[in-house]
């Protein structure tokens, strides 16, 4: 289903010291360091799994999601999803995935949600009947009926996130990437998002790859966890096993803290 083999990606980061003189010097010469965002990352994910990617800020989670979804071309390594290399057959690949970035929006800011949806229907070339069916289903399960006619900019964050999720599922993708989907949401919104994701996975068998800092997300959704740090997979295991291994109590946050400590992250 998803096979990632020793992927690597390096970025140049420019830096500068404080003060007038170094500001002036930087005019002529810029120092930079190479950051290995991904450094030999490998894993496999089967169809129908829910996998949580965890790791501290800057560990390479987002870069991983971007490579898998075909946004970034890695410097080395291979990645095959549904038999395709994402960045080589971009169009065919993206038709089968849905992506939600918690911190960004894919909805058109100034127009009613439903207009954004119709546009997406055309973009993904979804047949009318199928679109109507999916739309009705999503409207019901995500409780969108009242907000479909509101422009995105007037929605609360929780409402908008539900619309974002609906937007990325209109074309019925086999894989759904969620990059911090619950960030900034209130407790009730968080719960409804989680419930929906869980249900989607159970009923439709959608493969879900989730990055999050919220341990409650992990607890509620994932069975398997990939710990990413320094650009590679440090740990790949069942959530249950980890809990037993690392914490006497059942607090997942403690488990994660211990994991980070153990791997010096």
């Amino acid at each position: 289903m998803i096979e990632v083999q020793s992927i690597s990606k390096t970025f140049k980061v420019f830096q500068r010291d404080a003060g007038m003189m170094s500001a002036f010097r930087a005019l002529f010469h810029r120092k930079y360091t190479l950051v290995h965002a991904l450094n030999g990352l490998s894993f496999t994910i089967q169809e129908g799994e829910i996998v949580g990617l965890i790791g501290p800020n800057g560990a390479g989670k987002s870069t991983t999601v971007k490579v898998l979804s075909g946004i970034l071309v890695p410097d080395g390594g291979t990645c095959v999803i549904n038999g395709r290399v994402p960045w080589k057959e971009r169009k065919a690949h993206v038709k089968e995935i849905g992506v939600v970035f918690g911190q960004r929006s894919q909805l058109w800011w100034d127009v009613p949600i439903i207009d954004s949806f119709t546009l997406l229907k055309d973009i993904y070339r979804i047949p009318e009947t199928e679109y109507q069916k999916n739309l009705a289903e999503l409207t019901e399960t995500l409780d969108l009926a009242d907000i479909l006619k509101t422009p995105a900019r007037q929605l609360s964050l929780g409402q908008r996130m539900r619309c974002e999720i609906a937007a990325s599922l209109l074309h019925d993708p086999k894989i759904l990437f969620l990059d911090e989907p619950t960030i900034g949401l209130d407790v009730v919104s968080k719960r409804s998002v989680r419930d929906f994701i869980k249900k989607r996975n159970e009923e439709k068998g959608t493969t879900i790859i989730l990055t999050t800092h919220d341990t409650l997300d992990l607890e509620a959704l994932t069975e398997r966890i990939l710990l990413i740090g320094k650009g590679r997979i440090l740990l790949d295991g069942r959530l249950e096993d980890l809990k037993q291994q690392y914490a006497e109590g059942s607090n997942l946050e403690d488990v994660v803290v211990r994991l980070y400590e153990e791997y010096h992250l």
Partner: peptide
């Protein structure tokens, strides 16, 4: 002054 020094490309 320091702030605008950062934009070296812009200066050139």
């Amino acid at each position: 002054f320091i702030n605008s020094m950062q934009y070296r490309a812009a200066a050139w």
